[in-house]
Nucleic acid binder design. Structure first.
Lengths: 180, 180
DNA sequence: TGAATCTGATTGAACTCTCAACTATCCTAG
DNA sequence: CTAGGATAGTTGAGAGTTCAATCAGATTCA
């Protein structure tokens, strides 16, 4: 209890190679970056628009869908949410009157989530502030070289995390896709 | 309601410049990367060690502190947690017997959080799996060039987020610092 | 000294997310 | 046509986080 040396040493253990000093520093910076970025974005949205980032992602996705509506499962797949998470989130949006659900005619099990007029208005009001924050925190700070590097790094890491993310190479993207 | 065009256009609005296609793609990749990485790490720790990533960060930090103990506020500042979050988290660790709290003699308001022997054991068991996951998801995939690039990008972004993060340039880092 | 203020930490409510059931519908093979 | 299994989505409990309010011990200064 009064030992000031860590119990974890930088030698292999259980067949695991530990991180070296450089890797540690990078990992620490990455984690901190994630954490602070996430908090900054969430705080901005929560404060200025009364919604968490995940809800913004949902209404932004809906706003770009044909008829402003999508099947729950489509939505979940697109945003990589669990079905349960999506149900809870859309239920919450519904309570606020920003979204509505409707049974799917072709499949009795299915549900559509649709953006309401009110929801669309809320999104329109929330988007500028959100995008400004993204810009301010990230794109205004990075050189175009760094931006390209970042893209490559993310794609590389995603390859190992998300088999289905060789995604969207040429899909005509839309602006509110600053979401997720 | 049956309008398939997005309400958000890629023209300036409210003085905010929207993201262009490249920026959007990068931003999307970054978000997805964050999300999946975070889930992967959290799931691994939760599944194999019964704790969320944030709790791992706490016990790892404690394990490296002199006497395996730190003031609540120190701990919170180091990990960039709110006081409230830290209180709740340490309370949870205490319930599991992994940490203990003790009043600070010099300052009646203060509290120390200390790692228990049990907590140290739990950390020792959890660390290899966690580090392996970090390695597998990130460092095994990136070239050393990419690693350097990533470090630079994170530092750049952190400059705008966290004034106090020009941090740890030469502090003798320790292994369990794969935390946070 | 003693009021006003500041600081370290805690509390409880509200909310989101996860996980493990569970319901309802659809599909398929016998 | 019906039993078994797959699919779409929901439910509720448990946990972590945030926020605002609060408490108690320090500090300041008149």
């Amino acid at each position: 209890m009064s030992d000031d040396r860590t119990v974890l040493r930088d030698e292999p253990h259980d067949g695991v190679r530990w991180l070296n000093a450089d890797e540690q520093a990078t990992w620490r910076a990455l984690l901190l970056c994630y954490q602070l970025l996430d908090e900054a974005l969430d705080r901005q949205l929560q404060h200025d628009a009364g919604m968490p980032h995940s809800h913004y992602a949902i209404i932004a996705a809906l706003s770009e869908a044909p008829g402003s509506a999508m099947r729950m499962s489509e939505l979940a797949a697109m945003l990589r949410f669990s079905p349960s998470r999506m149900t809870h989130a859309v239920a919450s949006l519904e309570r606020k009157g920003w979204a509505a659900r409707a049974r799917c005619p072709e499949d009795g099990r299915g549900q559509f989530a649709a953006l309401t007029a009110h929801g669309r208005m809320v999104l329109e009001r929330a988007a500028p502030g959100h995008i400004a924050e993204v810009r301010r925190r990230i794109f205004d700070r990075l050189t175009s070289t760094q931006q390209r590097q970042l893209r490559g790094i993310c794609d590389t890491i995603l390859d190992g995390l998300d088999p289905s993310s060789h995604a969207s190479p040429h899909r005509p993207t839309r602006i509110s896709d600053t979401s997720a």
